[in-house]
Write a protein that binds this DNA or RNA. Structure first.
Ligand SMILES: [Mn+2]
Ligand SMILES: [Mn+2]
Ligand SMILES: [Mn+2]
Ligand SMILES: [Mn+2]
Lengths: 220, 220
DNA sequence: AATAAAGTTTAGGTAAATCTAAATAAAAGG
DNA sequence: CCTTTTATTTAGATTTACCTAAACTTTATT
């Protein structure tokens, strides 16, 4: 199946929204994710249905078919491998790579992708902690990631962060939060759901719910 | 100046044809190079003129402006650096990389380009022997490249090969011809302009004019 | 259940990049 | 220098991926 860049971006976003829980992905949600208009989403939905990549009935929302899911995982594999390349080999920092990977992911060559993976030592996660599908499109463990604002334990380790906002990643840089960082929850303030945190050898600091929603942790 | 992929491909092809000698690049030549139709070239010529990247008057052919040339060199820089990456780091062979670089070249990030160059050790030539423009768009020496079919000397060294034809590069692989290979011209056959060659420790063999036109050499 | 609000689709259009066929200009040959 | 051939441009379509505004469904609220 030969997909255009636009089609690939739709497939990837549908995958993401399905993963985030929605049973069927709505037109509006997809328009929001892709920063486009609902009418455009409807147009594309018809096309992707025609290509059998999604299940779609008027007013019923969108779901990937098995074939659509396979396509999505292939794009995600390329995206995350390029992010690894940029960080590991070209010394980019984690907030700079998502945008570049958005372009590099559309170079569709299995040989290139597999050689790149090999060159990087077949990494299992990208610079933001997201798992990298293998050449067959299999994702490792369906990792148990709790967003920090919902975590119960007091001692936590950062296992992933959202890669969408450069500003968030820059904020985390400033606070010294990266993958593997160990956090102590000092206090949770109910009134705005902010959280006071402490990292070893550093003064405590407080983060908003906006931020804690985008940090995935596991108990240590 | 923000160029589309199509515009970038036109600019690069115009640069190539100008370099190959034509004073003004003709509509037909450009259509041939880009594997498109003359009518499409005329359409694009109007657009590129509007953007001040080319000088163009109806029926008078096309030339890059200084700005157009700068854009061309930037695209060529990216193209050749990616080719180096694919060969040096991902072990692709020289006939496989041009097509992939055609896509990778369109990721327009100066930071990425410069980091990639640094990562590769700021290479001066690509896997086919073509020079790589530096970050300022300067090309090294206007290298004296003689195509083999016009070379006078008997002992020659291969300094570059055409990167356009996969079949040619595969043929050169089979014959053991690569960059730096030293060749002895045993005989030139006037009737079809074929050339009999010898590489040290190998039996002599004959190549057609088609092939020898695409091998650039210098006397040793 | 009726109505208001929210979500989605359709209708109709635009811009980019292409194409074919027809018209026109330039070049070449006698 | 006139005519044929070749090269180039124009006119008019097509496809993809968008958009706005209007119409239509679904859902929420009274
Ligand atoms: Mn990313
Ligand atoms: Mn993308
Ligand atoms: Mn090339
Ligand atoms: Mn290209």
């Amino acid at each position: 199946m030969n997909l255009s860049i636009a089609e690939e971006n739709y497939i990837k976003s549908i995958y993401k929204l399905e993963e985030e829980g929605q049973d069927a992905v709505t037109t509006n949600a997809l328009a929001g994710e892709l920063d486009t208009k609902p009418a455009s989403v409807t147009d594309m939905a018809k096309k992707l249905k025609e290509k059998k990549l999604i299940a779609y009935e008027k007013y019923q929302g969108i779901n990937l078919t098995p074939e659509g899911k396979k396509a999505a995982l292939s794009i995600i594999r390329r995206h995350r491998l390029w992010e690894c390349f940029l960080v590991d080999k070209l010394s980019f920092s984690w907030e700079e790579v998502h945008e570049l990977a958005e372009e590099l992911e559309h170079v569709r060559s299995e040989k290139l992708t597999n050689r790149l993976s090999e060159f990087l030592g077949n990494p299992q996660i990208d610079p933001h902690g997201d798992p990298i599908p293998d050449a067959q499109g299999k994702l490792g463990k369906p990792r148990v990631q709790t967003p920090l604002h919902k975590a119960k334990a007091k001692r936590l380790e950062v296992v992933a962060v959202s890669d969408k906002s450069t500003a968030l990643l820059e904020f985390l840089n400033a606070k010294g939060i990266r993958l593997g960082t160990q956090l102590d929850v000092i206090e949770r303030y109910e009134f705005d759901n902010s959280i006071e945190l402490k990292i070893r050898n550093q003064p405590a600091f407080t983060i908003s719910e906006q931020v804690s929603k985008n940090i995935m942790v596991k108990p240590i």
